[in-house]
Nucleic acid binder design. Structure first.
Lengths: 235, 235
DNA sequence: CGATGGATTGACAAAGGTCAAACTGTGTGG
DNA sequence: CCACACAGTTTGACCTTTGTCAATCCATCG
């Protein structure tokens, strides 16, 4: 992983602004950030790491992982540009976060300094609060995806989530930065079922492939019909 | 629902302190609170209500609900004494929250005033931030429960969660304030499967019943074995 | 005491997990 | 440039688990 100084952070945000959501990090908070560049499958933090930092994805993507005693893996969250993570009620992180995409950029905020800054600057505090609230909203939407009753619903809801989170689309193509087995561990189903379901959706012309990682949603209605669970932002 | 003035809030917290977690609400934040008393199955807020308030369960319990287009119900979260809810990234609540238990007490904080207070008092801001972080931790743990691979794992993890959230136990008995169908909608499985699984666990003497709503965990090890997914607090 | 709603049990069918094999595409080395 | 190796993806066959439908049990409240 390469570290670049905070000075270039503005440029980086600039450069990747298309992928980032409209709201950018508050200026004085940005000052604290150190941006690092990661290859694929590299840990941003590990299990039981002391919770010294908050993080924010600037570009690329990451997965937040939990491991079960018998070796299974569960993906708690996919993290995309603009997403904060590492907010922690205890003094250690209890998940591990790894990049999915080569060349991912991750901003790191020293927790202590950021807290101090929040104490002295209400705007910063508000900003962090808002970031936490969005994290809550995302996790609640995530719950609805995971609770889908059939494979089709879960995969459908997942595709819609990815399409929405990718931002306002210029192209109808959704790039899925994660592997099938990542998707499976996210939706708590077998890889084979994920694959079969996608194949099924393609056969029905609800979606189209370019390759395995690039899909187009042809019939949004169809996908929304089943899992219509008061979607939108969740509180 | 009956409204009692903020003056009595301290007493109420006092009265229900056994059920509440150690950390109490910050004093100046408490001043803003209005505590209301609810019967069973009463809405605390509804879908698409303007997000004017934050809430905190003082006593009793509640469920946060999403409805799907075809009438199914999903319970996003169970709310127990000490839990904050209503933190919202948008201007409306997109879930509905209902009490489960008769005589539940819920503190209501006007969002605008609370935000203003947070702006002027860093301690309050910190307190709210912490509450939001705990909400995140709870939702992440919830994800792990929902992602369990078998009925036994899900129900087991659910029982452990309830036992842990009930606080340090004087008795080994866990009171489940919710119905079987609530549990089913929380775990995304059929009521019948919940029932069968509990019966199975009782047959194996992993748990014992007093009645349907009061269970005792006899063999914690057994329950922890399967779903041991780096439990504890989650970040 | 019967009525009501929740909880349990049983029988069956369908969905999805598992195991095994084939396919695809990308990159590497000859 | 081609052949091969490897990892990710897809497909097939089978079998376990869970959802569904229906009936029964149980507790509580009039």
């Amino acid at each position: 992983m390469e570290i670049s100084s905070a000075v270039s952070f503005g440029e980086l945000v600039e450069r990747f602004s298309r992928a980032s959501p409209p709201e950018t990090t508050h200026e004085s908070l940005q000052q604290l950030a150190v941006v690092a560049r990661y290859d694929t499958d590299q840990p941003i933090h590990r299990y039981n790491d002391p919770a010294q930092y908050w993080f924010r994805i600037v570009a690329g993507a990451a997965r937040k992982i939990a491991l079960s005693g018998d070796g299974r893996r569960h993906i708690v969250d996919f993290l995309l540009p603009g997403d904060f993570f590492g907010f922690c009620a205890s003094s250690e992180h209890h998940f591990c976060v790894e990049t999915i995409v080569a060349g991912s950029l991750v901003a790191r905020f020293p927790r202590r300094s950021a807290e101090r800054l929040a104490d002295s600057d209400p705007q910063v505090a508000r900003h962090i609060r808002q970031a936490a609230f969005e994290s809550i909203a995302r996790l609640q939407r995530r719950t609805l995806i995971l609770a889908g009753s059939s494979a089709l619903e879960k995969v459908g809801a997942f595709l819609l989530e990815m399409a929405d989170r990718a931002g306002v689309e210029q192209t109808p193509w959704v790039r899925l930065p994660m592997s099938r087995s990542d998707i499976a561990d996210y939706l708590a189903m077998a890889v084979e079922t994920v694959s079969r379901t996608l194949t099924e959706l393609r056969a029905r012309r609800t979606i189209a492939y370019r390759d395995a990682r690039r899909v187009q949603i042809c019939d949004r209605e169809m996908l929304e019909r089943a899992p219509r669970v008061w979607v939108g932002r969740a509180c």
